[in-house]
Design a protein around this nucleic acid. Structure first.
Length: 801
RNA sequence: GCGGGUAUGGCGGAAUUGGCAGACGCGCAGGAUUUAGGAUCCUGUGCCUUUCGGUGUGUGGGUUCGACCCCCACUACCCGCACCA
């Protein structure tokens, strides 16, 4: 009988859909399991072979959990707002809503052809007004709690897309999407105060089960550092406050630097005698793009402020103040004390401007390079700190500063507030109204969703205003507060908004009273296992943790963290080992694989391709290998024999395979789980027969990986009921053990012989048996055994002389 | 520069309280079957060597009876961040 995968896969997909086989139940008394994969952006290119890798992995987990008796929630949806759709709409004069609808249809069809056990009753779409109503609602709560604010600020302006980008969307100084140069431009933007949650986002990483590299990335991104804030008095009669992580080096501060945007420059304008030069420098750095700033990173520039000096609080010495763009306004206080002896950047600057370098921590040669080691150095030239270690000196100087009222301990974070506005059409409208009298007034919740208006033209205006701004009838409204004339906010939300809470909506997707019912959230959250790309670690993953914590604070969700466990998959590369892309011509289309080999083969191959967490190149021949495996499974019906138990020869292999597959699924080792099943199949074929009981077990084990073929064989063999309704097979630890094992006999660590012996033989028995085997006799003749090592079940090593 | 990761046959990859390196699959070689094979089945397959044997997990050291695995010092490649005071 031929393995007609096309017919089999269509048949079972239809049956599962009809039976609603994978719907999560609303019976909240059962144990639950919430498995989640990142919902895709439905791009115009259709599904990519990269998509099925994580989807299949968690589908395997979901299917295994159902067999284990859990009520499983495994949902799918569409993160459909975003620039590519909008750009496509502009280019082809099709409404983005239509573009989205078409793309979603295609994606859904493709995903469904893979036999993934998603609960399609809970499908969501971020562009659906019934969905974004709640995205807007959450924004209003943030606004009401003071966590959304508008700020004039230098933003990343993409010269290609004519749109403001988040810091995270700028890669290497250019636009992540179009590659155009990004420059700095001052605009009024909505911001979300994620920084207010920095410490909790950091601390609570200890409470969740994320793979290490995700935790490390988030910690680095949040970038906590501890130090001190210190006030330097100036000859202008005021105080300049700086942040430093090395207060111990205060005696080595020989000059100060403020950022070109620092407000004190205005304040001191009438005292600065070289104001023209300073202004010129300010302008020059304002014009620099981020790219230029990083390009020129090595070459320090700056201008001294003539007419104003600072006073080092520890020794009363007057020191010069510079402006330089190596000091960023966005971190700390926008001003630093420069300690060229012990900071590489300050050292470079000091060398260039011939400023004094004082050694205050002994251990290096500060004339050659900055000595930045905090572990070994001893303080020198530092008055009352002399002789102390760096750690001791830090404590002592902070105490001293506090006593004198000159400084305080201080914690700083690299994490910055989230730029939340976009001057684009295809996003959630921000539900706020600006009134001259009342300021920013939130829309009443009863007015939600605030729908996107129909417009003729979605094109960005290029002057930084959203296309919505041109819609006079939509923009001009009455103030909800005073009834006077007012205007709507015309910016929309970034793509990250809808994905920051979507996992909550799956719990109760049709609720029109709240984001999800209390009961549903209480039961389903947190997500038990969330898998997604590493590229979302510092964006989506951090943003959604922030929103979740906020929702927890206002009593909407019952848990402080959204995801109990987070894993991440590697990319699938082209056959040439490069990233798949149209321009490289190495893209593999999943539809063709499904057509030529079947969905089960595609699933199996993507799980077998290599370590799930690492990138792996596609290999068409290996796809064939997986197909061969399934064909041989299909052929097992021809050697099927009656009997419910395991045959004597296969009992051990079956128990071992059940154990291996059960454990490997939990630790993302899908490749070795499949290898174990392949090895078992080789054993079965070598023996030449399989009992009904054995085949039942094998089909259940393989079902999460290859659901269609296994369900088909289950039916063909009349095993009763549907395969997806069965239980996960159990194994007996005792029966996993081999009775006889082969023991290696080594002489001086080299394998010289082997013996087969009862697996439970103890060390004495092993040694006695080993000494008797003929192969090693030549190596023992005329020698003395000086050491004997025996390891149960493994080997014997005799050291001779 | 900083942070993270990786390095094992022709290829993808297995192997952990330190104990037979190369499971499983691909490819390749030989054979069977076939009108035919890019189908199927069987056998073999790290490298060197006719054999005996030797040798082998990026490089150089070390610890150990024994190291892909632990320690020290390097090299190469990949990813992320990047003047964060």
């Amino acid at each position: 009988m031929k393995y007609d995968y096309t017919a089999i896969e269509k048949k079972w997909q239809k049956i599962w859909a009809k039976k609603n086989a994978f719907a999560a139940s609303d019976d909240y008394t059962k144990p639950k399991y919430y498995a989640l994969v990142e919902f895709p952006y439905p791009s115009g290119q259709g599904l990519h072979v990269g998509h099925p890798r994580p989807y299949t992995a968690l589908d395997i987990v979901a299917r295994k959990r159902r067999f284990q008796g859990y009520n499983v929630l495994f949902p799918m949806g569409w993160d459909a707002f975003g620039l590519p759709t909008e750009n496509y709409a502009i280019k082809n004069h099709i409404h983005p809503e239509i573009v989205t609808k078409n793309n979603v249809e295609r994606f859904k069809k493709q995903i469904q052809s893979l036999g993934l056990s998603f609960d399609w009753n809970r499908e969501i779409n971020t562009t659906d007004p019934n969905y974004y109503k709640w995205t807007q609602w959450i924004f209003l709560q943030l606004f009401k709690k003071g966590l959304a604010y508008k700020k004039e600020m230098a933003v990343n302006w993409c010269t290609g897309c004519k749109v403001v980008l988040a810091n995270e969307e700028v890669v290497g100084g250019v636009c992540e999407r179009c590659g155009s140069e990004v420059i700095r431009k001052v605009k009024s933007q909505w911001m979300l105060k994620i920084t207010e949650y920095a410490q909790r986002l950091l601390d609570d990483l200890d409470t969740v089960d994320y793979i290490d590299r995700v935790k490390v990335s988030q910690r680095n991104w949040i970038g906590r550092s501890t130090g001190a804030q210190v006030d330097f008095s100036t000859t202008a009669g005021d105080k300049l406050t700086i942040f430093t992580t090395r207060p111990d080096t205060l005696f080595g501060a020989t000059y100060m630097v403020v950022s070109p945007e620092h407000p004190y420059i205005e304040k001191w304008a009438d005292k600065i005698t070289n104001l023209e030069e300073v202004r010129a420098y300010q302008e020059a750095s304002a014009k620099k793009s981020d790219f230029e700033r990083t390009e020129l990173a090595k070459d320090k520039t700056g201008v001294v402020l003539e007419g104003v000096q600072a006073v080092n609080p520890v020794n009363g010495k007057e020191i010069p103040i510079f402006i330089s763009d190596y000091v960023l306004m966005s971190y700390g206080t926008g001003a630093i004390m420069a300690v060229p002896g012990h900071d590489t950047r300050d050292w470079e600057f000091a060398k260039k401007f011939h400023l004094p370098i004082i050694e205050v921590v002994k251990g290096g040669d500060v004339e050659q390079e900055a000595f930045t080691d905090c572990e070994t150095g001893i303080l020198v030239n530092s008055g009352f700190l002399d002789g102390l270690s760096v750690e001791e000196a830090k404590k002592k100087i902070i105490t001293w500063l506090e006593e004198k009222g000159l400084g305080t301990p201080k914690v700083n974070y690299k994490l910055r507030d989230w730029v939340f506005s976009r001057q684009r059409y295809w996003g959630e409208p921000i539900p706020l109204i600006y009134c001259e009298k009342c300021g920013w007034v939130p829309l009443d919740e009863s007015e939600l969703p605030l729908r996107l208006p129909e417009v003729e033209n979605y094109e960005p205006t290029g002057d930084g205003e959203s296309p919505l701004a041109a819609m006079e009838s939509w923009v001009n409204v009455k103030c909800p507060h005073c009834g006077g004339p007012a205007r709507r906010e015309t910016d929309t939300m970034p793509q990250w908004a809808g994905s920051s809470w979507y996992f909550l909506r799956y719990c109760d997707p049709h609720n029109d009273k709240e984001i999800a019912s209390k009961e549903a959230l209480e039961y389903w959250t947190p997500v038990d296992w969330y898998n997604g790309g590493m590229e979302h670690t510092t964006l989506h993953l951090l943003y959604s943790r922030f929103w979740h914590k906020f929702l927890y604070d206002i009593g909407v969700v019952p848990t402080p963290e959204p995801y109990a466990k987070r894993t991440s998959h590697g990319m699938i590369l082209g056959e040439n080992g490069e990233k798949m892309s149209k321009s490289r011509g190495n893209v593999v289309n999943p539809d063709e694989i499904v057509r030529d080999y079947g969905a089960d083969t595609l699933r199996l191959y993507e799980m077998f391709i290599g370590d799930f967490e690492k990138a792996a190149p596609w290999n068409q021949n290996s796809v064939r290998g997986c197909k061969r495996f399934l064909e041989r499974i299909y052929g097992l019906t021809e050697i099927l024999t009656p009997g419910n138990g395991y045959s004597k020869e296969l009992e051990g292999p079956f128990h071992r395979t059940i154990k291996k597959v059960s454990e490997d699924i939990e630790s993302l080792k899908f490749n070795t789980a499949i290898a174990a099943m392949m090895a078992l199949l080789n054993d079965i074929i070598a023996i030449g027969k399989i009992t009904q009981g054995e085949l039942r077990t094998l089909l259940v084990l393989l079902n999460p990986f290859a659901p269609h073929i296994t369900e088909e064989l289950w039916e063909q063999c009349n095993f009763g009921g549907m395969l997806f309704e069965q239980s996960w097979p159990a194994y007996d630890e005792e029966k996993c053990k081999e009775e006889q094992v082969e023991i290696v006999v080594q002489i001086c660590g080299k394998v010289r012989g082997r013996m087969t012996i009862a697996a439970d033989s103890d060390e004495q028995a092993l040694l006695a048996a080993a000494k008797g085997i003929p192969e090693i006799q030549p190596y023992l003749a005329g020698k003395t055994i000086i050491k004997e090592i025996a390891v149960k079940g493994k080997l014997v090593n005799l050291v001779v002389k």
